[in-house]
Each structure stands twice: as structure tokens, then as C-alpha cells.
Write a protein that binds this DNA or RNA. Structure first.
Length: 588
RNA sequence: GUUUCUAUAGUUAAAUGGAUAUAACGGUCCCCUCCUAAGGGACAAUUGGGGGUUCGAUUCCCUCUAGAAACACCA
């Protein structure tokens, strides 16, 4: 269904053309002065310069041309040259009746076969998720869902950190602890055991221990580097260990991500790119793109139009091992081969900006991706404590993600128990859902690129722009609908009438914005736009709710219209939170 | 040193170059005979400094100040 703003833009665009101006001046948007009008067009002012004519003269001409159109209740040109528009209730009513029955509330999908690859999560094997992984998972999941909703085939890849020095460190430490394992016996011929020689708990202890040693003990560090290289050269025993590490870690990570409502389509890792590396690097050298510098292989990425200096990208270390950029590039080789995405979205800490700039440029320069493929980096800021510094535990350590989630769920539980008399089991269940929503909404409602302050009390508040407030609104609607159904009513039979009261019109207008918001959130890859929208929609509903008695309304048509309206509101809100990766409980 | 990002009410955050900068929290006040008051309404309060481009700048450009970060063999 064509969006209301687009319909108006088209009418105005035609009028501009008929009056001898360019159609682009017809561009109309939501008014930022709701007290004056619902929609506004600023084209007359822009046109005034191009056509050397006073803006209000142009505006008047346009208004004169279309003022009799049935969709406008009022249309006028004011002060410098704004064209202010209020639409007819009937037109609005028609539109809302339309979106209530259409798939995706009338959102016109791009409906292509194109693929969007979302690279997020970024967990490392052998290492539990900590708060540093929160934003990538939460924002990435939402971005993936938004892309999918707009009609693209979307693939989410966790892209595990399972390669590089960290693996060498673990192998070396394991060798010191259990030297008799067959993996370390070069003459071992048989099959390696199926069972991993460690549990996830041991692994999570081995890794920081090894990584610490590597910093203080140069002998250990060298051994770890050798092990890394051996692994990268395909040492059989080491590969088998890597396999164990992956298996043990992935099943644990899956569980943890599931608790966050985050699901990946692919569980690939850096190690999967390994087979592509040598050919890729050789080709780049042969093509004259990559060259040797200080023993390493690098690629220049400076371009003539650059005003600033960009350091070259290192794609092979002097000891011959692969590094970060190498595996990212080689991963692209595989992704191009298997999926040829139209768009790649990478989510990572914004501090990695330079790395992504370098790696994208190399990918383009070496033709690793097709020229038309687009590579986008969404860098996000850090989650800080109330002191404005990166969030730490009381002891100054890095907080495990599961503990953070538990903390917030417990806090919500306390709050539910002090307010209501709900069964403990139900309160626990509700607190789980609401707590997660509070955390995710608190994160997603900020622009990704900015740092934000984690304030538990604010996030779990039921007032203000918070997850719980949105969920509360949904629950409230559900409870009215449930009551209606229990009295024998059928929501499916209810038909939406044209809006009458101001609060009703506002609610209709909010609902009509849905498609626009989705498009905007997708274009800018900005989940916070959806947060803002569902918050405003909730507000519009609550205002309407406050002054409208729904179930006791005596006029049957009106009552049914209200019910259909709030049902639609609920559906839109539920779609909205789903795009954020949030769920709503039945009761709160 | 070079480069990047950030700067908005007391606090936390919004704003395709548009009108009187928008919300929330906190503050002051008001509203339940009523489907969840876990709600609604009212009031006070903000664009770091200085230039420029523009009819019009929180937004674009320059500069200063303050904070954060990245700068080849970690990922």
C-alpha cells in the first residue's frame, strides 16, 4: 500500500509540474508542528530560489491547484512558504482499514532475491560471553530482523573468533597440562578420541591463564606463536584440538545466545576461511596489489581523492601467519562464492573503524567482492557505568553477560513482587521476559554509534521510554481483548470506523506511519528509530485509552471499531518489538 | 605527532537543512464510582566558544576548547 506521505507527495509533485516547476519540490513529510498540521511540504521555499519567485506565491499556486482534492481536509500556504496539510478522517480511516487487512500492515517489500549478510555476535571460542558482546548481539539481531522484514534474504553469521594466536595459546597450555594426549604425539596414527579432553568450564579457565602467561612469559609466547603457525599449516593433532574446542564452545554459546533471543543462521568461524587464504594472497601478489614490506605482505589502500593519510593494510605477517584482515578477507571469498550478497553489514565496536575501512578497501581493490556489492560497517559505542567509564564489576573485572542478565531479571522480579500479588512462578517467568526487554530496549533505543550509560533503575522503570512501558501497553491491550473474547465477542468481526476524537486521530496517524518507519530504520540501519516509534505509538494508545471507555461503549459500531483499532495497535507493537528481538508476556 | 568519533534542559537521550529544538527521568501541581494509577494532564528548564555557506543551521564547512578512541605483524 502506498504510504500516505508518498500519496501526498505525488499529488503535490504533480501540482508543482503543472505549475511549471520540478516535481521534486512536492516532497512531503510528517509535520514537526502537530499543533498546526499533520503533514508539511517545504518545497515552495526550495523552489523559490531556483525559479526566483517569492515562496508564498509558489505555495499559493500549488494550494489553489489541489485544494479541492478529497483527501485534504485543509491545505494552506503559510508565512514564509510552508504548505500545511490536514487530511480527511475518511481518507485516514480508509488507509487504516487497509493496513489492518494487508500483509505487513501495507509495507511494500523490496521483494527481491538479493541477499544481505549480517556479521555480528563476534564471540570467541573458549571464552564466555561478557558484556562487551552484548551490543553486537542485540543490535545485530535487530538489524538482521529489520533487513529480513523488508523482504531481503538475510543471513546472520556469528563469525566466531576461532583462529589466530589465541588458539595457539590454548594448545600450548593444554600441552603443558596434559602432554600425554595423543594430539601431541607426532607419531600417532590412529583415530583421535571423539570426546573432548576438557569441559567448557576447564576451557574457560585455560584460556585466560594461557593468555596471561603469554604476556609475561616470552618462552611461552614463542611456543604459542609456533603452535599457531603449525595449526595454520594444518597440523593434524592441533586441528583435532581446534575441532574439540569449537564443538564444546559452540553448544555453550548457542545456549547463551538463545537466552538472549539471538539466533544465527550460520555458525562459521575465522578458521573456515583458512582454505581460501593462500590462493587469495598469492593472487593479490600476482596482480601487483600486494607487496612485501618489512617482511610482511601489505596492500596500499590510499586513493588519490583521499585528503587524509591511510596506513596500508597488512594481510600476511612476516612469520607467514594470517591475521585479522587476512581471515576477514578470506571469509569474503567464501561468502561471495556461496551467497553473493548485495549488502554486507558488519557490527563491531567502533574502535575497529580503521580495520574495517582498510579491509573494505582491499576487498574492493582486489576484486574479492563484486563491484556492486556494498560493504557497511556499523560501529557501536561502549556500554558505560554510571561514572561514564566502561562497565566493570565491583572488583574491576569484566562482567559475564549471563550475570548481567540475571541481575536485571532479579531486579525486575523484586519489582513485580513488591507491586502485585502474583504467583512466584509466574513472576519469575514474567521477570525473565521483562528483564531481557528492559536490557535490550535500553541498549537499542540509543543510536548505535554512541556510548551509553547502563542505568539499571532507569531501564527497568515502568515509566518513560523503557522496554517495560512498551510491554505494559501491549499487555494492557491484550487484557481488554481477552475480556471481550471471554464475553463471547469476536475480534475478527470488528470493523474500524473513521476516527472522530483528537486522541483517536492521533492514534490513527501513528499507525499510518508504520511503513515509513520501517523503511527509514532499514535505510539507515537504525533500530533506535523503531524504538522511538513504538514508544510514540504506545503513548498515542495510552492517551486514547485514558479517555475512551472501550468495553462499556453502548454504540456497538463504535465499540467494535475501538476493539479492532486496539487490536491493530497491538499487532503493530508486537511486530515492532519482534524487530527488536523482544517478546511480550501475557500479563505483568 | 597523525587521524577518527563525541559535545543538546539538573540527568539520560531524540531531531531527511525548516516554523516556537523533542521526549523521558528528576522538580512543582492536578486527575481514579471507570477495561491494570505499572496510567493521564499542566508548568519551569537546553544546542560547548567563535567564524562561514544558506531565505533558514543542532544538522553542512573552517577554527578553538573539552572528552573518548585508533594508528602494521592482538583479534
Amino acid at each position: 500500500m502506498k504510504k500516505i506521505v508518498d500519496q501526498i507527495t505525488e499529488i503535490l509533485g504533480t501540482a508543482f509540474v503543472e505549475c511549471g516547476y520540478d516535481s521534486k519540490y512536492g516532497k512531503t513529510g510528517i509535520s514537526n508542528r502537530p499543533d498546526l498540521c499533520q503533514y508539511q511540504c517545504n518545497g515552495a521555499m526550495a523552489a523559490s530560489k531556483a525559479y526566483k519567485k517569492a515562496p508564498f506565491l509558489i505555495g499559493d499556486e500549488i494550494v489553489e491547484k489541489i485544494k479541492d482534492n478529497a483527501i485534504f481536509k485543509t491545505i494552506e500556504c503559510v508565512k514564509p512558504g510552508f504548505i500545511n496539510i490536514v487530511i480527511e478522517e475518511e481518507f485516514l480511516g480508509d488507509y487504516i482499514r487497509g493496513i489492518a487487512t494487508e500483509d505487513k500492515f501495507g509495507y511494500e517489500t523490496s521483494a527481491t532475491e538479493d541477499v544481505i549478510m549480517v556479521d555480528y555476535g563476534g564471540a570467541n571460542v573458549a571464552k564466555p560471553l561478557h558484556i562487551g558482546h552484548l551490543r553486537s548481539a542485540v543490535i545485530g539481531e535487530s538489524v538482521k530482523r529489520i533487513c529480513k522484514y523488508t523482504g531481503y534474504k538475510t543471513i546472520g553469521d556469528v563469525h566466531l573468533g576461532d583462529w589466530g594466536l589465541q588458539m595457539g595459546q590454548i594448545i600450548e597450555e593444554l600441552k603443558l597440562r596434559k602432554p600425554k594426549l595423543p594430539y601431541f604425539d607426532e607419531n600417532f596414527q590412529g583415530e583421535y578420541p571423539e570426546e573432548a579432553p576438557f569441559t567448557i568450564e576447564e576451557l574457560e579457565e585455560i584460556y585466560p591463564c594461557a593468555s596471561g602467561k603469554s604476556k609475561t612469559d616470552p618462552i611461552f609466547k614463542e611456543a604459542a606463536q609456533l603452535a599457531t603457525l603449525a595449526l595454520q599449516n594444518g597440523n593434524k593433532g592441533y586441528m583435532a584440538i581446534l575441532n574439540h574446542i569449537q564443538k564444546v564452545s559452540v553448544s555453550d554459546l548457542k545456549k547463551n545466545y538463545e537466552n538472549l533471543n539471538v539466533y544465527f543462521d550460520l555458525w562459521k568461524g575465522e578458521s573456515d576461511a583458512q582454505p581460501y587464504i593462500s590462493n587469495m594472497v598469492e593472487k593479490m601478489i600476482k596482480d601487483g596489489i600486494a607487496y612485501e614490506s618489512q617482511g610482511a605482505i601489505v596492500v596500499d589502500i590510499q586513493e588519490p581523492e583521499d585528503t587524509k593519510e591511510l596506513p596500508p593494510c597488512l594481510i600476511r605477517k612476516s612469520d607467514g601467519a594470517a591475521n585479522y584482515a587476512t581471515s576477514d578477507l578470506a571469509t569474503l571469498v567464501e561468502r561471495e562464492k556461496l551467497y553473493s550478497p548485495k549488502l554486507y553489514v558488519y557490527l563491531a565496536d567502533k574502535r575497529q573503524n580503521l580495520h574495517y575501512t582498510q579491509f573494505f578497501r582491499v576487498a574492493k581493490k582486489a576484486n574479492i567482492v563484486r563491484p556492486e556489492a556494498e560493504l557497511k560497517f556499523i560501529g557501536f559505542g561502549t556500554m558505560n557505568g554510571k561514572d561514564g567509564k566502561p562497565f566493570k564489576t565491583r572488583e574491576g573485572g569484566v562482567l559475564r553477560l549471563e550475570y548481567l542478565i540475571k541481575d536485571i531479571q532479579n531486579a525486575v522480579y523484586e519489582k513485580i513482587m513488591e507491586n502485585r500479588t502474583v504467583e512466584e512462578v509466574e513472576a519469575r517467568e514474567t521477570a525473565k521476559i521483562v528483564g531481557l526487554a528492559a536490557l535490550k530496549y535500553g541498549d537499542l533505543s540509543n543510536q548505535a554509534a554512541k556510548d551509553y550509560i547502563f542505568d539499571m533503575d532507569r531501564f527497568i522503570a515502568f515509566e518513560g521510554e523503557t522496554g517495560p512501558y512498551i510491554l505494559y501497553t501491549i499487555v494492557r491491550i491484550k487484557s481488554i481483548l481477552k475480556k471481550y473474547k471471554s464475553e463471547g465477542g469476536k475480534i475478527e468481526d470488528c470493523r474500524i470506523q473513521n476516527p472522530v476524537k483528537a486522541s483517536e486521530i492521533s492514534l490513527y496517524l501513528e499507525l499510518s506511519r508504520f511503513s515509513e518507519v520501517i523503511q527509514n530504520a532499514f535505510d539507515e540501519i537504525a533500530p533506535h528509530k523503531i524504538c522511538k516509534y513504538i514508544y510514540e505509538l504506545s503513548n498515542a494508545f495510552n492517551r486514547f485509552y485514558h479517555e475512551t471507555k472501550i468495553l462499556v461503549e453502548v454504540d456497538q459500531d463504535k465499540k467494535e471499531s475501538y476493539l479492532a483499532l486496539i487490536n491493530l495497535t497491538k499487532n503493530v507493537l508486537e511486530t515492532g518489538i519482534d524487530l527488536l528481538g523482544i517478546e511480550a508476556p501475557e500479563r505483568m
